[in-house]
Amino acid sequence: MTGSTAQRPGLDARGFLTREGCLARVPHAFRPVVAATRDRLAGVFGRRLHSAYLYGSIPRGTARVGRSDLDLLLALREEPTEADRDDARALGTALDAEFEQIDGHGILLFSRARLLSDPERYDLGWFVACLCTPLLGEDLAACLPRYRPDSMLARETNGDLALLLPRWRRRIAEAGDTEEALRPLVRFMSRHLVRTGFTLVMPRWNGWTSDLSEMAEAFAGYYPGRGEQMRAAAVLGREPVGDAVVLASYVGDLGPWLAGEYARVHGLKAPRPDGL
């Protein structure tokens, strides 16, 4: 399959990736959650906080009441401490308990310096500039370049799957065998594999989407032999079930194949100074 000459979603007229979310797209039901989050972040972190961002389905406008989680990225003025992480967890837990609109939370903490560092230019930097919506503070996107859906971006965002698979196997072994324990792993790994599959073909597809079904279809257009696996993973990324067989297939078949093909096509992600 060859890429279409028509302009793909997620690109401007010059072929640069556009920011996918904005506060105006936040569904009405989630606006009280966002307002409370903004107010409480300032109170919890004060001057430690440089800027805060929403990402995921809420700023994209696709969040589902009672099903979607609250995703935040916090840029701190200094490297995050354990106390900072504890504060973030406590804040997320409190918001999750108070607002029935959300089901879970995820809060990423990084220093401003790391987000703007050269090693993170095409990973965390791109994430802030293109997938995060400013909520508080000065927007770091002003300090970052424009991005195209090219092989460098593919390599630096998801070219580390081979390193992740051993960690995934340990997490599966330590999780136990209950449906409740395995469901979050199925959700997380399904989403990660679909996104990795999409960025594998992203330079040829020449565009961006965060919709799991669209990602899987884009991948299947170039790898039809693996298309059904990726479509199934997209479904499980939205509606997970705690199935040990699914997880075994991820770390024993789809994941290793995808890691090898990714390395062949784009190469390996550059090592980070801290090994992350």
Rank of each mutant, 00 (worst) to 15 (best):
D12T: 12
G15K: 07
G15D: 05
E20A: 02
P27A: 04
H28M: 14
A29G: 03
A29L: 12
A29F: 04
F30Y: 13
L41Y: 08
A42W: 08
V44M: 06
R47L: 07
R48I: 03
H50W: 14
G56S: 04
S57P: 01
P59R: 00
G66Y: 14
L70W: 11
L72V: 02
L76W: 07
E79M: 12
P80C: 09
P80M: 11
D84R: 10
R85N: 05
R89V: 09
A90R: 15
G106R: 15
A113M: 08
L115T: 07
S117H: 05
E120F: 00
Y122N: 12
L124Y: 09
W126T: 04
C132K: 00
L135G: 02
G137M: 01
E138S: 10
L140S: 02
A142H: 13
M152A: 12
E156F: 00
D160P: 00
D160R: 14
P166D: 03
R170V: 11
I172C: 12
I172F: 14
I172P: 13
A173H: 09
A175N: 08
T178E: 03
T178A: 02
E179T: 15
A181I: 04
S190R: 00
S190F: 08
T199H: 09
L200W: 04
S213F: 14
Y223S: 02
R226F: 15
E228Q: 14
M230A: 09
R231G: 08
P240T: 03
G242W: 05
V246E: 07
A248T: 06
V251K: 01
W257M: 10
W257N: 08
G260Y: 10
E261M: 03
K269M: 15
A270D: 15
D274E: 06
